[in-house]
C-alpha cells in the first residue's frame, strides 16, 4: 500500500497512519497521551539540537533513514556531554511512498531510540506531492550533569582520539548510488556507551564531535578554528577499513572528507590519553579507536603523511568527486 495525500489531510487517514505506525512503534507514556505537546521532566542544564535527514537511498547496508534520524540527533547531544532523553520526530512524506517501508523506518527509529535510552515524545506527519521520498526531522533534548564539552577547551598537548574507522557511512551510501557491489556497511550507531564510559571514568575530555558530513578533516578544522590551536595528525595512525580505503582510492576521494554516522573524535587531556583510548576501545562501537594526533600551538590541521611528508588538511569544499582522467 502506498501513502496518498489523504494520509496527510489531518483526518481519519492521518489518524490511522499515526496510530498504526508511529504511535505503535514509539509507544511510551508521554507520547501515548496524544496531546498537542509533550510535558516532560527536566534538568537544570539541558542540551537541545535538531537535524533533518534526507538520505537517498532510504535503505542502505547497515541501516536506514530511521536509524540515522535517531542516531544523528542522539550523537549531537552526546557530543556536548549531555545524556540524551527525549526526541521529537517529524516526517515529510511524498505521496507514493510505500507504507511497508514507512513501517520499517519507524521500527528502526524505535529500536535505535531504545538502544540510545531516549523516548520519542512528540511527532508530526505531513504528506506532499512527489515521488515517494521520505524525509525526517528529529529534535532532541539531553540533560547535562557534569562539564559540557566545547571546542574552545582544546589545549596544547591534548590527544586526538577517533573512535573507529573513517568513511564507512559515506562509502556505503556512495556504493549504493553508484551501484558498486561491496561489503561496506554504514556505521550508523548511537555512541552513548562510549560517552557514558568516558564520563564515568573521570578522564578529562575537552571537546568531542561526531564525524559526520565533511569528515574528520572538516571537524578538526572547526575545532582548530574555535580553539586557536593546531591539530597535528599522523596519517598512518588513522583507522580506515581496507575496503573503504580501496573504494576511496578507486574514486579519487579523500578519506579525511568522508562522513561517518557512528564515529566520534574526542580531544582528551594528554595525561588521560591512554586511559581514554582503552575506555573507548572497550565500549560498544569503539573497538577500532586510535590516537591519531595531538594538539599543538599554531593553527589549522596538518598531517604527517605515511610517506613522511607534511601537508595541510583542509575542509571539504563542494562534493567529494571521482577523478576524470
Amino acid at each position: 500500500m502506498k501513502i496518498t495525500l489523504a494520509h496527510g489531510s489531518g483526518g481519519q487517514s492521518t489518524k490511522e497512519l499515526i496510530e498504526k505506525i508511529f504511535a505503535a512503534s514509539y509507544k511510551n507514556p508521554v507520547l501515548d497521551m496524544m496531546e498537542d505537546s509533550a510535558v516532560v521532566g527536566g534538568s537544570a542544564k539541558i542540551a537541545v539540537t535538531t537535524d533533518s535527514f534526507v538520505v537517498n537511498p532510504l535503505f542502505f547496508k547497515g541501516g536506514n533513514i530511521g536509524r540515522l534520524a535517531v542516531c544523528g540527533t542522539v550523537n549531537d547531544l552526546l557530543m556536548r556531554g549531555a545524556t540524551p532523553k527525549y526526541l521529537t520526530s517529524a516526517f515529510i512524506i511524498e505521496e507514493g511512498a510505500e507504507l511497508s517501508e514507512l513501517k520499517l523506518i519507524a521500527a528502526s527509529m524505535a529500536q535505535a531510540a531504545r538502544e540510545a535510552g531516549v523516548i520519542i515524545v512528540a511527532g508530526d506527519t505531513k504528506v506532499i506531492e512527489g515521488k515517494g521520498g521520505i524525509y525526517i526531522n528529529t529534535s532532541g533534548v539531553g540533560f547535562v550533569e557534569g562539564d559540557d564539552y566545547a571546542s574552545f577547551k582544546c589545549t596544547q598537548g591534548d590527544a586526538i582520539i577517533v573512535s573507529g574507522s573513517l568513511g564507512d557511512h559515506h562509502a556505503a551510501i556512495l556504493s549504493h548510488r553508484m551501484n558498486i557491489k561491496n561489503d561496506i556497511a554504514s556505521d550508523v550507531a548511537p555512541l552513548c556507551d562510549i560517552v557514558k564510559n568516558l564520563q564515568n571514568s573521570g578522564v578529562e575530555v575537552h571537546a568531542m564531535r561526531d564525524i559526520t558530513r565533511g569528515g574528520l578533516g572538516t571537524v578538526l578544522n572547526e575545532l582548530a578554528d574555535a580553539s586557536g590551536k593546531c591539530f597535528e595528525l599522523s596519517e598512518s595512525a588513522i583507522p580506515v577499513n581496507p575496503q573503504v580505503k580501496s573504494f576511496v582510492k578507486l574514486l579519487g576521494l579523500n578519506i579525511m572528507h568522508m562522513g561517518n554516522e557512528g564515529k566520534l573524535v574526542a580531544v582528551v587531556s594528554k595525561k588521560d590519553a591512554e586511559k581514554a583510548l582503552e575506555i573507548i576501545k572497550n565500549s560498544k562501537y569503539g573497538k577500532d579507536a586510535a590516537i591519531v594526533g595531538y594538539v599543538s600551538s599554531g593553527n589549522g590541521v596538518v598531517m604527517e603523511t605515511s610517506l613522511g611528508g607534511k601537508k595541510k588538511v583542509g575542509i571539504l569544499i563542494g562534493e567529494g568527486l571521482p577523478r576524470i582522467c
Binding site: 579519487g252 579523500n254 598531517m303 604527517e304 603523511t305 605515511s306 610517506l307 613522511g308 611528508g309 607534511k310 601537508k311 577523478r323 582522467c325
Partner: peptide, 17 residues
C-alpha cells in the same frame, strides 16, 4: 603534466620532502 600527479604530490606532502 597530469592532474592526478598534482593531487598525489599534495596528498603525500611531497613538496615538504
Amino acid at each position: 603534466v597530469c592532474g592526478t600527479h598534482t593531487a598525489s604530490i599534495v596528498e603525500n606532502g611531497i613538496e615538504s620532502m
